[in-house]
C-alpha cells in the first residue's frame, strides 16, 4: 500500500546520485527487498513503471528486484532460522527471545549508468 511512497524516495535518491556523477541516463537499478519488509514486489514494480516516466534520467531504467530471505536469531540457543516459516518462536528450543537479523530492509544496491 505504501509502495508508491517508497518508490518516490528511491527515485529521489537515485536521481541525486546520478546528477552528482554527471550521468546521461540510468540504465538499470538493483534494489534488495527483504521478505518481511512489507513491500509487495508486483505493486512496487507497477509504481516504479508509473513513476519513472516522470523523471529526468530514469525514463528507460530497468528495475531488478532481489528478494532477501528473512532470518531470525535465537538469543537463548544461538540458532538462526527462517522467519517466514517459524515467526518469533525458535524451532529448536521454543524460545521467543529472538530477533530479526535480515529481511526487513529495502536497500538501493547499485545503478548502471551511461
Amino acid at each position: 500500500m505504501h509502495e508508491l511512497g517508497v518508490v518516490s524516495h528511491v527515485i529521489k535518491e537515485v536521481e541525486t546520485v546520478a546528477k552528482e556523477n554527471n550521468v546521461q541516463k540510468v540504465i538499470s537499478l538493483t534494489l534488495e527487498v527483504g521478505e518481511v519488509s512489507t513491500i509487495v514486489p508486483e505493486l512496487f514494480k507497477d509504481c516504479f513503471e508509473w513513476s519513472k516516466k516522470r523523471t529526468e534520467l530514469m525514463q528507460e531504467c530497468e528495475l531488478n528486484l532481489v528478494i532477501l530471505a528473512a532470518v531470525t536469531y535465537c538469543k537463548d540457543c544461538g540458532e538462526t532460522y527462517s522467519t517466514t516459516k517459524h515467526g518469533k518462536t525458535c524451532p529448536k528450543c521454543g524460545s521467543k527471545n529472538t530477533y530479526l537479523i535480515t529481511g526487513s530492509e529495502v536497500t538501493i544496491k547499485d545503478i548502471q549508468v551511461e
Binding site: H9, E13, V23, Q24, I108, Q112
Partner: peptide, 19 residues
C-alpha cells in the same frame, strides 16, 4: 556506446534520507 556503461554502488537504505 557500451563502453560508457558503468556501475555506481549505493548500498543505501531506501529510508535513509527520510530517517
Amino acid at each position: 556506446m557500451g563502453n560508457n556503461v558503468r556501475t555506481i554502488l549505493l548500498e543505501k537504505s531506501a529510508f535513509a534520507d527520510n530517517d
